[in-house]
C-alpha cells in the first residue's frame, strides 16, 4: 500500500462512514498504529453534529503481509466471543471490496486500554498477578467454547489429518517456501516433531493462533480486549497454551510466562477455566511446535524484507531477534531431551 493511497484514506473513510451511519460526521483524528505486519491498523475518532464522539479501529488488508490470512477469519472469531468472558471489540462492518478504502477492511469499536510489547519485561508492573490470572483464565474460556457455535462452525473443520499434522505441515510448507538459508537447528526441531507426535486432543476448540502478551489490551489491572485473531482455526487447545507459554514472550524472565505469573499457577488456572486436563508430554510437543511455527513466521518476514516486497523494519526485526530466540529455545528443548 503506497504512502499516496494512505494520504487519501482519511477523506475516503469519513465519506464511507458518514454514508454507512447515515450521519454527518467530522474526523477528529486518524492515526496509523505501528506494529503488526498482517494488516494496517488505524485508530480513528469521529464526531457527529450533536457533538457525540465515537472511537473506532480500522484494520485494512496489506498488499504484502507477513502471513496471508483472510479477514473473515478474524471477523468470525470476534463475532463468536461477543458478550462472553472473552473481551473482544464490537464489530461494525467488514468489506471485501477494494473500491471503498483501497483494500478489504474491517471496522470495529475501539476498546479502552493499551497493548504492551512482548519484549518489555516490566510492561505489566505492578499488576502482573491480577492480569496474569485473567490472561490464563480467558485462554481457558476460549478453549472451552463449543465449536458448534454459529460462528465457529463456519471455520474449516474437515481435515482427515490429526490437528497436529495439519498445523505442522502448514508451517513446514511456509518454511520450505520462504527459507533463505539452511538452518540445522530448525531442521532438527521439525524432525523431532514428526517422529514423536502428540495424542488427539480431548476436544477440539477454536485456537486463537497468536494468544500472547502483546496481543491483549489492558487498563490498570484489567484485561479489556483480546486482539489479533487472524490466525484463528479449529484445532488442539494445547496449541494456544504452548504458544502463550513460549519463553520467547518472557525472554528476560523465563520463570514467568508472558511476564505475568509463574508457569505452574498459569497451568492450574487454564485447566480450571478450560475444564481440560493437560497431558504434559502433549504440551511439551506443542511448546516445541510453537518454536517451529514462530520460525516460519520470522522466516516469512525475512523473505518479504530480503526480496523487497515489504521493507517495514518489523520484517527485519522478526528474523533477527525473535528468530534467534526461537532457535535458542529449540536448542534448549533438544538438549533437555538428552538429560
Amino acid at each position: 500500500m503506497s504512502m499516496e493511497s494512505n494520504k487519501e484514506l482519511p477523506s475516503k473513510f469519513i465519506s464511507y462512514y458518514s454514508k454507512f451511519t447515515n450521519k454527518e460526521l467530522t474526523l477528529l483524528s486518524f492515526e496509523r498504529v505501528f506494529g503488526g505486519a498482517s494488516r494496517e491498523t488505524f485508530r480513528i475518532q469521529v464526531k457527529d453534529k450533536t457533538g457525540s464522539e465515537e472511537k473506532l479501529i480500522l484494520r485494512r488488508t496489506q498488499e504484502s503481509s507477513l502471513i496471508e490470512t483472510s479477514q473473515s477469519t478474524e471477523y468470525l472469531a470476534y463475532s463468536a466471543y461477543q458478550g462472553t468472558a472473552v473481551p473482544v471489540p464490537a464489530m461494525v462492518d467488514i468489506k471485501e471490496d477494494e473500491e471503498t478504502l483501497g483494500a478489504p477492511f474491517m471496522l470495529m469499536q475501539q476498546l479502552d486500554g493499551v497493548e504492551a510489547s512482548p519484549f518489555t519485561p516490566d510492561a505489566y508492573s505492578p499488576h502482573e498477578e491480577k492480569l496474569g490470572k485473567q490472561f490464563w483464565s480467558i485462554l481457558g474460556e476460549i478453549s472451552k467454547k463449543d465449536i458448534n457455535d454459529n460462528f465457529i462452525s463456519q471455520f474449516e473443520n474437515n481435515s482427515e489429518d490429526p490437528c497436529w499434522k495439519s498445523e505442522l505441515d502448514k508451517w513446514v510448507d511456509v518454511i520450505k517456501e520462504d527459507s533463505i538459508s539452511i538452518e540445522p537447528i530448525l531442521e532438527a526441531g521439525i524432525r523431532k516433531l514428526y517422529e514423536d507426535p502428540p495424542k488427539d486432543p480431548q476436544k477440539k476448540s477454536l485456537v486463537h493462533g497468536d494468544y500472547r502478551n502483546g496481543n491483549f489490551l489492558f487498563k490498570d489491572n484489567k484485561i479489556t480486549g483480546i486482539l489479533d485473531w487472524e490466525m484463528a482455526h479449529i484445532g488442539d487447545p494445547l496449541e494456544d497454551l504452548g504458544w502463550a507459554l513460549s519463553p520467547i514472550w518472557s525472554w528476560q524472565d523465563r520463570q514467568k510466562p508472558a511476564y505475568l505469573i509463574d508457569r505452574q499457577e498459569a497451568l492450574s488456572i487454564w485447566e480450571s477455566s478450560s475444564e481440560i486436563t493437560i497431558d504434559k508430554s502433549d504440551l511439551n510437543w506443542w511448546e516445541l511446535f510453537a518454536c517451529i511455527k514462530g520460525m516460519a513466521i520470522w522466516i516469512s518476514a525475512g523473505n518479504e524484507f530480503k526480496t523487497g516486497k515489504n521493507v517495514d523494519p518489523i520484517n527485519l526485526f522478526s528474523p533477527w531477534i525473535p528468530g534467534d530466540i526461537h532457535l535458542e529455545i529449540i536448542l534448549d528443548i533438544l538438549e533437555g531431551d538428552l538429560h
Binding site: 510489547s117 519484549f119 518489555t120 540445522p184 537447528i185 532438527a188 525472554w251 528476560q252 526485526f317 533477527w320 531477534i321 525473535p322 534467534d324 530466540i325 532457535l327 535458542e328 536448542l331
Partner: peptide, 18 residues
C-alpha cells in the same frame, strides 16, 4: 549447533531495541 548460533545471533542486543 549452539556455538554456530552464538556466532550469528543478534538477540543478545535486544536491550538496544528496548
Amino acid at each position: 549447533l549452539r556455538e554456530m548460533h552464538s556466532h550469528r545471533k543478534v538477540s543478545d542486543l535486544i536491550g538496544l531495541l528496548q
